[in-house]
Amino acid sequence: MTGLILQRILSLVLTLLAVSAVIFLVMDVLPGDPAAIMLGTSATPETLEALRRELGLDQPLVLRYLAWLGGVATGDLGTSYTYGVPVAGLIAERLAVTLPLAVFAILLSVGIALPLGVVSAARRNGPVDYAAGLLSQMFIAVPGFWVGLLLVLVFSVSLGWVPSGGFPGWQAGLAPALGALVLPAIALALPQAGVLTRVTRSAVIEVMNEDFVRTARAKGLPRRQAQWRHAVPNALVPVVTILGLQFTFLIAGAVLVENVFNLPGLGRLALQALSQRDIIVMQDVVLFFAALVIVMNFVVDLSYLALDPRLRTRA
């Protein structure tokens, strides 16, 4: 088991290295010179040279890659070309928006999906089940950014209850900051909730059919109790697994939803860095996302290994 985990960690590191190389190469061959973008339409060639020197862009490719990698390994993510501040700080500032948004969205989606899925499973093949099935299908089908637009249309443009976007910052207090995240979190949560409802439903049904639940039921445990005491806790495992695997989609959704609601999050930072060719920021952000996804998958794998010994041979 330990050997297997070590092997997994090694492969995780290798994957991350490969990802970093790919990101670096792609960003390097992108058309567009960061110096030319920063200096505008009237820049002279020698100014461009001077700025490239200052940014270290005159160094050979391999050296720049190694310098970046070495920095990342020691926690120094470099300095943003455009802002002139350390990238780590920039990412931390943006993460203070994206992370709460993602957590909020996950909580919401679990809050919607769990009851819906359990009820669906309990009333299996009944009208409630079909209604819930249709609802979850619809949740999956709607693009999160469209839900965002509709929420803005209803709650800000028509009703005027909330601002249509923007983020007051945490220094403005917890309530206004969380308030600004409500609509985006809903937009982000709905598609996830659709997927999770279906997972919960099938997981609960599966557990209810397992021997230990049947035995408990045969011994006189009421169905409802069996469901909440045995089925739901056990069904949480696949739900959490899917949450981990859906993380990629949550991030993708966050980039779009941040855009609809003008949230100064990581996704917007990436878009902005890409358009300004703030290459170092873009590299760091993409690597950060990739690392998150890889680690998330690793944790999911680990939990699988821990839960299901049969899989250990398949790995």
Partner: peptide, 22 residues
């Protein structure tokens, strides 16, 4: 499979952004 992991690791919207720029 490692190559798969590498592609899979970058959220599609980000890789699409970079490809679009490329």
């Amino acid at each position: 499979m490692r190559a798969n992991d590498v592609i899979f690791a970058v959220p599609p919207i980000l890789s699409a952004m970079m490809l679009g720029a490329l």
